[in-house]
Structure formats: C-alpha cells, structure tokens
Amino acid sequence: MKHILASSIIAFALIFSGCSSVGSSVSHNSGRPDGSISDDMNYFRSLADFLENVPGVSVQGQGNNAYITIRGISSFNTTNEPLYVIDGHAVGNSYIEANRIVTPNDIDYVRVLKGPDAAIYGVRGANGVIEIVTRKV
C-alpha cells in the first residue's frame, strides 16, 4: 500500500513539474530580439516597471520621478541617463519625456543596448540606449 501511494505521489509530481507558471508578466518571446522585455499580461504601469526587469539597469524612484541609469556606462555628457529611442526615433535623455510619450499598454517590448551595441547611436548613446518598440495595430 505504501509503495502504491509513493508511486502515485511521484507520478503526480512528475506530471505537474513540467507546467509553466501562469500569470508571469515578463515574457521573452522568440519573435522579439534577445534580451528584450515584454508584458503580454499588461501588469506594468510605467516604463520603469519594464526597466526594473532588465539586468544592469538601475531604477531609482517611481512614476515620473524615476531616475534610470545603466550599470557600467560612464558619462560623456553632463548626465548619466541613457538615450531613449521610441520606434526608431531618438527622443532624448529624459525618462520623464519618454514616459510621457508612450503608455505601458502600447509597449510591445523594451530592449537595453550597452557598450558596442549602443555605438550605432554615436555619442548620444554613450550612456546606453533604451529602445522602446510599440505594438502595431
């Protein structure tokens, strides 16, 4: 009897060990670039919520008062803030401006570029680049 009970418990555990968790707000879909963060469940309420999930990105504060820096990047400008690019258009180094332009529900994914990857944006990308791609309707 103990053998049957133990076998049943093991079988049950094996069946459910392969299940993925439901409700995870951060997804890494194969249709998006490597290292990008998306929110298919619409849990994020600001751009900072996306960026908090990116390794190497420091988010201090909340809402429009957030200050974003990318670890390992030194400033050539007067600020340490990264360049924000929305749908291929550089909007500057202001988190407040980028957060004002795009709402979290419109964001398809966010990708952070550092080092040589950010070089395509020249000196403006010296502190890193945060690429924001919106959903296409």
Rank of each mutant, 00 (worst) to 15 (best):
H89Q: 14
S94M: 10
Y67D: 14
V22K: 14
V22C: 01
V102Q: 05
N105Q: 13
I10S: 01
Y84Q: 04
L51K: 00
E52L: 09
F12M: 13
A13P: 04
D117M: 11
C19P: 03
V59S: 01
I70C: 00
A6V: 15
P104R: 10
S30T: 12
D39E: 09
F50K: 00
Y95G: 02
N42R: 12
V54R: 04
A11C: 11
S8G: 15
V85M: 04
G35E: 09
I15R: 01
A6W: 08
A90C: 08
L5H: 10
L47A: 03
G128S: 06
R135F: 01
I96H: 11
I86P: 00
Y67C: 07
A48K: 04
N80S: 15
F50H: 08
I107A: 02
Y67N: 14
S21A: 14
A90W: 02
K136S: 12
N127R: 05
G122L: 03
A48S: 15
A118W: 02
I130P: 03
G88D: 07
S24V: 10
V26Y: 06
I68G: 03
V57M: 02
N80K: 15
K2Y: 12
K2M: 12
V133D: 02
S7T: 13
S58W: 01
Y121A: 03
V137F: 07
G125E: 06
V22I: 14
I73K: 15
R124F: 09
N65A: 14
Y43V: 10
S25W: 11
Q62F: 12
R71T: 05
V129S: 02
V137T: 09
F76S: 11
I132M: 01
T103C: 01
S25L: 10
I107F: 05
E81N: 15
I9D: 05
I70K: 00
I10F: 07
R111L: 04
V59R: 00
D87A: 00
V59Q: 04
S17C: 10
D39M: 09
L113K: 08
V110I: 06
F12G: 10
N64S: 13
S8M: 14
G72C: 02
R111N: 09
E97I: 13
A98G: 01
I70T: 07
A126H: 04
G18S: 12
R32H: 15
P104W: 10
Y109S: 02
Q60N: 14
D49N: 12
I4V: 14
G56I: 09
I120R: 15
A6K: 11
R135C: 03
K114Q: 13
G35F: 07
V26S: 08
I120C: 03
G31Q: 09
E131A: 08
A126C: 12
Q62E: 15
L51D: 03
G56A: 05
I120E: 12
V54Y: 01
I101M: 15
V91D: 04
L5P: 05
R111M: 04
Y121F: 12
S74G: 09
G23F: 05
G115E: 11
